[in-house]
Structures are given as structure tokens and as C-alpha cells.
């Protein structure tokens, strides 16, 4: 019964606290995924570009941010960014320490990493589009913008969904590292709850279970999206000769 009370929503319970932290984790991850989608699209475009220097920039980005530990990026953005802001503050005459908001810094850091993985997903998806369909778009007189919007984008998204599901899970777990900035997301909340009650087993297992709930729910969302996007391809048995 004591356990239920600890996990409940009541005065002594940590339930509401953990739920709120779960929502924070979800929010950090979703924000990071959105930031990563923008960066990933730009980097994928750079890697597919005709320009040698743009391709180089894209290559460096994906190599660095996939090759360096996530925690280091988070420290770099949060503490590096904060000391940068503090320096600007001092220059403007303010003496104290100015910290970056931990949510924004965390989402940005995870988003930058997510962008590197998403760029690779988008690049692969682009290559999966049959070349002939792009030629048909050229032949009918579509300009670059129309081709991108009507032919390339919808198909890149379709081919990217399974890969994006993967990146989402990676980012969800990376978001646990944002706890080092003091943001009370699911990881930090489990730590605080277990530390204050000394029920380490209980709260870490509950935290882990909540992560699993998030990942299996998002798995279903991505599977559904994949089925929906592929309805034009399903049951395709009578193909071309």
C-alpha cells in the first residue's frame, strides 16, 4: 500500500510529478525532432547538391554530430552557450551568471544531433525515388519548386518514415541526457524521486517503464503512418513486365 501511495497522485505521491516529467520528455524530444527536421533537410540538400563545397559542409556536419558523444554536445551547448551569454552580459555591465534556459538548450542540442541522423535518412529516401518519376516531372515542364513540392517531398517522406521512427527513438533516449542541465524531465524526475524516498528500485523501474510506454506508443504511430503512406504500393503484384 505504501508503494501505491508513493506513486499516487496524492500529497505524498510522486505520480503527478512523474507524469509532468514524462510530458516534458515528450516535449523536449518533439521540439528536438522538429529542429532536426529543419537541419536535416538542409544538410541532406547540401549533401545532394552539385556544389562540392556544400557537399563538404554536409559531410562534416553528419560526421561530427554522429561521431561525438551526445553528452559532450549537450555540455557544449548548455555550458558553452551560457558562458557566452554571461560574457555578453558582463560586456553590457551585468555581473552575474546568465544560464541558457535548460529546455531550449537541451532541445537544441538533441535537435542538432537528430538533424545529423535525419539528414542521412532523407538522403537515403531521396535516392529511393525512381529516377524515371523525376524525369517524368521534368518532361511535363515542372520547375524546380513544383518538382520538389509535388513529386520529391511526398515520396521522400514516404520512404523516410521507418528511418524517422528510428531517429525519434534515439532522440527520446538522448533527451535523458538533458537531465544534466537540471531540466526535470523523466530521467531527472526518477532520480529526484528515488533519491528523496530512497526507493531506488521502484522509481528507476517506473521511469524505465514510462520510457517504454513512450517508445511503444510512438512505434505504433510510426507504423500507422508507414501503412498509410504505403497504401499506394500495397498489394502491388501486377507490376510491369
Amino acid at each position: 500500500m505504501a508503494l501505491l501511495e508513493l506513486l499516487g497522485m496524492g500529497q505524498k505521491g510522486w505520480g503527478a510529478y512523474l507524469l509532468l516529467a514524462t510530458v516534458t520528455t515528450l516535449a523536449v524530444t518533439a521540439t528536438a525532432l522538429a529542429i532536426g527536421a529543419v537541419l536535416g533537410t538542409a544538410i541532406a540538400a547540401a549533401k545532394l547538391s552539385h556544389s562540392r563545397s556544400l557537399r563538404f559542409v554536409g559531410h562534416v556536419y553528419t560526421t561530427v554530430f554522429r561521431g561525438v558523444p551526445e553528452l559532450l554536445i549537450i555540455y557544449l551547448i548548455y555550458f558553452g552557450g551560457s558562458s557566452g551569454i554571461t560574457a555578453i552580459g558582463q560586456w553590457l555591465g551585468y555581473d552575474g551568471f546568465l544560464g541558457l534556459p535548460s529546455f531550449a538548450a537541451g532541445a537544441l542540442a538533441v535537435g542538432i544531433i537528430s538533424g545529423a541522423y535525419q539528414a542521412e535518412v532523407f538522403r537515403g529516401a531521396y535516392h529511393a525515388i525512381p529516377r524515371g518519376e523525376i524525369e517524368a516531372a521534368l518532361a511535363i515542364g515542372m520547375n524546380r519548386g513544383l518538382r520538389f513540392r509535388r513529386i520529391i517531398m511526398p515520396q521522400v517522406l514516404r520512404f523516410a518514415i521507418p528511418g524517422l521512427g528510428n531517429v525519434w527513438q534515439l532522440s527520446l533516449k538522448d533527451s535523458a541526457l538533458v537531465s544534466v542541465t537540471g531540466l526535470v524531465e523523466l530521467m531527472r524526475a526518477s532520480q529526484i524521486a528515488s533519491g528523496s524516498t530512497r526507493q531506488y528500485f521502484l522509481f528507476y523501474i517506473v521511469g524505465g517503464a514510462l520510457y517504454l510506454v513512450l517508445t511503444s506508443l510512438s512505434d505504433r504511430v510510426f507504423n500507422g503512418a508507414e501503412r498509410r503512406a504505403n497504401r499506394s504500393m500495397s498489394g502491388a503484384t501486377i507490376g510491369r513486365a
Binding site: P130, E133, A136, A139, G141, S232, M233
Partner: peptide, 21 residues
């Protein structure tokens, strides 16, 4: 683009856009 819109092209591999009806 304009000239292409005035020339109809039919390919060996059909090249219909697979995500559209």
C-alpha cells in the same frame, strides 16, 4: 520548362508518379 510543357513524352518504363492515383 515551357517548351517541355508543349512536348508530350512517353517513356519505356511508364514513369507514372507512384504516390498518386
Amino acid at each position: 520548362d515551357h517548351i517541355r510543357s508543349e512536348l508530350g513524352m512517353v517513356f519505356q518504363g511508364f514513369n507514372l508518379w507512384s504516390h498518386m492515383t
